[in-house]
């Protein structure tokens, strides 16, 4: 009996691990590419072990362009990403509470508007949007990269709304009877119960913002203010020669912060699962 269980467990782990390897193979290839020679990368061998180990990709890559190193790009990325992620969580919580819990006039209207904002391709609204920030005198600068994140992000507002639906109304009603206002229900009941949703928002938004390059491209102009996402693209050029080794090296480095954030917050999604659930 117990032997059977052990075997099943082993199979489970082998399967999950093997499949996991297949999943991350392309990423491993990129990391190994960061130690490869340009020609080896272009030849497209699928081996993970470089023929000749070339660590200089990291130093040439880190050097950056014309005296601006990746230290600067990383610093800029951190500033923008952390503030924007904070803004997203804060504003999306507020808005999702209104849209899912409060019966106010225009609720459906605003919800429809919110969904509609996601349905137009960025390419067609990008320039009109740029002109607004430009007329407000905010270009070039970080404000256009950060301000919208304090206005709620549709993807996360809707996500939080769906999670709030899982919180029983009886809790609100009980609190109202105890004399709680809508405001204190939000701070005392909703927010503490929204932890898993907040954590997913942080993980996903951090990565998205970190990876976003259209925003920085439009709204930043001095190379000293570039973020990592644009800087990596500067290695590639269709009309001349691309240093793939250096590009892979910096792509690998740029993966580290997002991965650490994930590792750090992921435990909130695993620990004590099925114990913290709300008793219905």
């Amino acid at each position: 009996m117990s032997e059977k269980r052990v075997i099943r467990k082993v199979i489970y782990h082998i399967f999950v691990l093997a499949f996991g390897f297949v999943m991350i193979y392309p990423v491993l290839w990129m990391i190994s590419g960061s130690f490869k020679d340009n020609s080896e990368i272009l030849r497209g061998t699928l081996a993970l072990i470089p023929e000749t180990l070339k660590a200089t990709n990291y130093s040439t890559g880190w050097k950056g362009f014309g005296g601006t190193t990746f230290a600067t790009f990383f610093k800029n990325s951190f500033i923008v990403t952390i503030i924007a992620t904070f803004g997203t969580v804060l504003s999306s919580l507020l808005v999702s509470y209104a849209l899912s819990r409060i019966q106010f006039k225009g609720r459906k209207f605003w919800f429809t508007c919110m969904i509609a904002t996601m349905m137009l391709p960025g390419q067609v609204i990008m320039i009109p949007q740029y002109l607004i920030y430009y007329r407000l005198g905010l270009v070039p600068g970080y404000v256009p990269l950060i301000l919208p994140y304090f206005c709620g992000q549709a993807f996360f507002i809707y996500q939080m709304m769906q999670f709030m639906k899982g919180i029983p109304r009886e809790l609100d009603e009980a609190a109202t009877i105890d004399g709680c206002s809508k405001y204190s229900i939000f701070t005392h009941i909703i927010i503490p119960l929204m932890k898993p949703s907040i954590v997913t928002t942080v993980i996903i938004q951090f990565y998205w913002k970190w990876d976003d390059y259209m925003g920085p491209l439009l709204y930043l102009s001095r190379p000293q203010s570039y973020t990592v996402s644009i800087a990596i693209k500067l290695f590639a050029d269709a009309s001349s020669i691309t240093d793939y080794g250096a590009m892979f090296a910096m792509s690998t480095l740029s993966l580290i912060p997002v991965f650490l954030i994930f590792l750090f917050f992921n435990r909130y999604l695993v620990d004590g699962i099925r114990n913290t659930g709300i008793k219905g």
Binding site: A98, W110, I132, G152
Partner: peptide, 24 residues
């Protein structure tokens, strides 16, 4: 309810009118 709703939804309404509506 109307006040509470508008207060909490304010960030979105503000952002939508200022930065999304006109481009759309």
């Amino acid at each position: 309810e109307n006040t509470v709703g508008n207060v909490f939804a304010f960030p979105f309404i503000f952002g939508f009118i200022c930065f999304s509506l006109i481009p759309m």
